[in-house]
Design a protein around this nucleic acid. Structure first.
Lengths: 158, 158
DNA sequence: CTTGAAATGCTGGTGTC
DNA sequence: GACACCAGCATTTCAAG
């Protein structure tokens, strides 16, 4: 992936609704050239989708927390992500190195809702939990600056 | 905020590029009614923006980590977020309750880049760091289900 | 919230280098 | 293979009822 594609990705990461016309102006290409590149980036999976960024306070989910989980039975099959996927309060699930096995990012309406969610997490996945409550979020979802070197990955342009 | 607005927010959270035409079909409203609502939601800050979701592997940022930081001098002014804002590898910064004061989410190209970043974080903000490396991400950026109750916040529809 | 109409933007085809 | 141009069509946007 070279210069212009990286530029396009960065621009769309900042404004996912930017028009092809504007992208064309910013990149110095014609509209259809940009169009082709975006389609290709989508097809390759570099652009995985588009999302609106919402104010969670405004939609009644004013409590954010990180929940680290650890299996109670270390011998059991580790399918926690699948077992937890039905809980829509879980926004993200990362498998991590370290003492615990996953970090979940959760959004709930209140402390009581958090308590309830933690119970559901524990029983659904047979894990213990350690919760870190978010007090405020100075920033989030900042757009990435793509690394300028090659990744070493094969170019599987379909 | 009621039913239809919540629906619009959820739909746009799932697909930030959904057209007004499609939103209108899904909500049973006319195109311009949807348009008005979206504009109002944007103005109120409920919809904070739109972003493309990128495959960080594909853009050469294949290492994700959570970095918890703690001030070395607890008496010093706590302006870590400002001091760290120039580091573009930091995607998010959350102030948290607990032993540490902030959790950062960072994206870098390699372990060496992570080492370098940690040094920059420590010197920029005069903090100690504790890093949890992400091994894989089963899911992320799942769309929220707005809480159906009122938030108790005043309706500041501008 | 609706209608309606003008401006803008999207998209695929065709041709060039 | 990558790009530019063009033309038809869809969408966006705004004014007015």
């Amino acid at each position: 992936m070279e210069e212009i594609d990286r530029r396009i990705v960065t621009l769309l990461a900042k404004d996912g609704r930017m028009s092809f016309t504007d992208l064309a102006r910013e990149t110095g290409l014609s509209v259809s050239a940009v169009h082709q590149r975006v389609r290709r980036l989508e097809k390759r999976g570099v652009l995985r989708g588009y999302a609106a960024l919402v104010d969670y306070d405004a939609i009644g989910l004013s409590l954010t927390a990180f929940v680290s989980i650890k299996p109670i039975d270390p011998a059991a099959a580790d399918d926690a992500p699948d077992r937890l996927a039905h809980l829509s309060a879980i926004e993200a699930c990362h498998s991590v190195a370290g003492d615990e096995s996953y970090i979940l990012k959760v959004r709930v309406a209140s402390p009581i809702a958090l308590e309830e969610l933690l119970n559901q997490i524990r029983t659904s996945a047979n894990v213990s939990t350690r919760t870190t409550v978010v007090l405020s979020t100075p920033y989030e979802h900042r757009a990435p600056e793509p690394a300028n070197s090659d990744t070493g990955k094969p170019d599987e342009s379909a």
